[in-house]
């Protein structure tokens, strides 16, 4: 087994054996389940409402899980000194960091897997259908979004303390989801300096809303799956920020005295 996989597996074992993920999934499931009890929609409306709430809750819950899990990986290793025997083995710090990142992603996939089970069961219970093509694209982009959040959280945990890293990660997660709309609305009313600032922020900060296909998946009758070119562009967009954040995390970590 490769060192990256071995380290990733240890992160996954932790995520699976700790109770937090199950608690998050359970609470979110209760929230999603409550949606099924509303009776001011017809069945089609209820299915759409369910889909929208379920996907939003899943995205938010998994995003928060990823931020917390990723942000605490390195500080916990330092605090408990578990990093010493690990980095005494013949692995580079980059391998260590990649293993941690893969582990967080496997944990995110595990979390999402549990949510998917709830989502699919709920959808079939309501007699709805799942638009397979669009849904798979939704899942793929969600995973890219989680990877970006994990890389960002790694970097934040290297430059600020754990609490601040989690707080900043959460703020970014929620702010960036509305940033695209906010920029579009504000830009025409801003003065030249404001417009310049918005333009810089528009390109400097990753806009997670671009990676969110929730609305399209909910209203799938109006939206065909995205074409390959768009998917490639979105992958490249996310990939760029993932590399930037992960590169920054590695830069801080590679010569950090332990």
């Amino acid at each position: 087994m490769t060192p990256v996989w071995l380290i990733a597996r240890s992160v996954l074992i932790e995520a699976v054996r700790r109770k937090e993920i199950y608690a998050i999934v359970l609470i979110s499931t209760l929230l999603i389940g409550a949606v099924m009890t509303v009776d001011f929609f017809n069945l089609e409306g209820l299915t759409k409402f369910y889909r929208e709430v379920a996907l939003q809750v899943m995205s938010a819950a998994t995003g928060l899980t990823v931020i917390v899990l990723a942000a605490r990986q390195l500080p916990r290793e330092f605090e408990n000194r578990t990093i010493y025997p690990l980095l005494a083995k013949p692995i580079s710090r980059l391998t260590f960091l990649l293993g941690k990142l893969l582990g967080v992603m496997l944990a995110a996939a595990f979390c999402y897997g549990l949510f998917m089970l709830v989502f699919i069961l709920g959808t079939f219970y309501l007699g709805g259908e799942i638009p397979v093509g669009l849904f798979l694209q939704f899942l793929y982009l969600q995973m890219l979004k989680m990877l970006l959040l994990a890389a960002l959280s790694f970097w934040l945990s290297m430059v600020v303390n754990l609490d601040a890293a989690i707080a900043l990660g959460v703020i970014f997660f929620f702010a960036s989801s509305v940033m695209t709309n906010a920029f579009t609305l504000l830009y025409p009313f801003a003065d030249p300096f404001g417009q310049g600032t918005i333009t810089v922020l528009n390109y400097a900060l990753p806009q997670l809303a671009l990676l969110d296909l929730t609305e399209k998946t909910v209203h799938s009758e109006f939206w065909p799956p995205l074409n390959l070119g768009t998917m490639f562009a979105l992958t490249a967009y996310a990939g760029f920020y993932i590399l930037v954040f992960f590169g920054a995390a590695w830069y801080c970590f590679r010569r950090r005295p332990l």
Binding site: P3, I13, E14, R18, N80, R81, L86
Partner: peptide, 30 residues
């Protein structure tokens, strides 16, 4: 580091792992 065995001054080992799993991790990394 490939040819060294190292015992740190104070180290806790992952509390969520079993002793066998931990040794599999370290042995695998070696």
């Amino acid at each position: 580091r490939r040819r060294i065995g190292y015992l740190p001054e104070v180290a806790l080992y992952y509390p969520f792992m079993k002793a066998r799993e931990l040794l599999e991790l370290y042995g695998g990394l070696q």
